[in-house]
């Protein structure tokens, strides 16, 4: 890839062929306030937070929609830029509630980040009250338009990432809002509940119904279909509380479906999980210690000829599990009678 140098705030920065000014800056650790930018989506230029000054360019181009180029000289802050950004933020916040503590986006909110970065501290424009009903029809996430900043990340994700196009912006101007076709609730729409929109939402407008903040994350692989999506299991106090796609995984590049994102913690922590071996006795199953269960299984299996036993392995278990199982079948039971549901 072609690389070149540009100057941002008097620092020499290396950038690559397709980088926008915003991407080049973020890669170099220079934060430019932004809201509608999502690396998975085409540049949008709607929030106007990332405006910069570029030598030789008229006005204040948005860093997210401007391609970086060799020798470019960029300024990301300055008295005028700071004022313009604050004005834009002020406008945005005049359409936004300020009940941050009770907002589901609290602490994860990119608007908060922008506001604190810019040192916003006083409201001067008249706020607009909005009372859109919350769409809570989806079992996993809510759509609360009162928090929406119309960055369109959700609708662009539903188009550019998933191709489902369950949601779109409707109406115009400050009547714009996120809507499903014909304005139905999410549960009655084309939505497939993958939650990609929720992941992209920079504020609390699309938020998980029940999602405490994880304290630790573990990179692993989704246990459902054969795509093998890379996931991070977020845990807290020994329980899985969140799942997020691993952007670095070449198989899914951060995307997930409804099962992977929302369908894991409940089965892992389900009360019906088998907790101890069980042995069938006269009156039905009884819990047993490992020693007893293994003895019954081992001793009984020892009593059969190789051609009298068979093993069914698992397409859900790990490679190591399956390896040991087939080794056991062949080396201990003495038979090749092993198969699994690959054919089914």
């Amino acid at each position: 890839m072609e690389t070149f140098k540009l100057k941002i705030d008097d620092r020499q920065i290396n950038a690559g062929g397709g980088d926008t000014v915003l991407q080049a800056a973020l890669k170099a650790g220079i934060y430019i306030p932004n809201l509608c930018y999502d690396p998975r989506l085409a540049p949008y230029g709607g929030c106007r937070m990332c405006i910069v000054e570029i030598e030789g360019t008229r006005g204040f181009p948005a860093a997210c929609t401007t391609r970086a180029s060799d020798g470019m000289v960029v300024k990301t802050y300055g008295p005028q830029l700071d004022r313009l950004r604050l004005d834009t933020l002020e406008l945005l916040l005049s359409d936004h509630p300020t009940d941050c503590l009770t907002c589901p986006g609290n602490q994860r909110c990119e608007l908060q980040k922008v506001a604190s970065f810019l040192g916003y501290n006083q409201r001067s424009l008249k706020p607009r009250k909005s009372d859109h009903p919350i769409d809570d029809s989806n079992p996993f996430f809510n759509l609360d338009r009162n928090y929406c900043v119309l960055c369109a990340r959700c609708v662009r994700t539903c188009d550019e990432v998933t191709g489902i196009n369950a949601i779109e912006l409707i109406n115009r101007g400050d009547e714009s809002r996120v809507s499903t076709f014909a304005g139905s609730r999410l549960a009655e729409s084309e939505c497939r509940s993958c939650g990609e929109c929720m992941v992209s939402c920079p504020v609390g407008a699309i938020h998980a119904k029940n999602s405490p903040v994880a304290t630790e994350e573990t990179a692993t692989i989704c246990p459902y279909c054969g795509v093998g999506c890379g996931i991070y299991l977020g845990t807290r106090q020994g329980k899985i509380v969140s799942v997020r796609g691993n952007e670095a995984s070449p198989s899914n590049r951060g995307s997930l479906c409804v099962k992977g994102r929302f369908g894991i913690n409940e089965f892992v922590h389900h009360s019906e999980r088998l907790k101890s071996p069980r042995v069938k006795k006269e009156g039905g199953f009884e819990s047993a210690e490992w020693e007893e269960a293994l003895r019954i299984a081992g001793d009984k299996l020892s009593g059969y000829k190789p051609e009298e036993v068979a093993v069914i392995a698992s397409a859900k278990a790990t490679n190591e599990d399956n390896y040991v199982l087939q080794k056991f079948t062949r080396a201990v039971l003495g038979t090749n009678n092993i198969d699994h549901c690959a054919r089914l």
Partner: peptide, 21 residues
């Protein structure tokens, strides 16, 4: 203009309404 603003960018969408008010 406020009525016809497409709503994509913040300054035009909200700014025109605030100026109008």
């Amino acid at each position: 203009i406020q009525e016809e603003s497409c709503g994509k960018c913040v300054p035009c969408r909200t700014g025109t309404r605030q100026m109008l008010a």
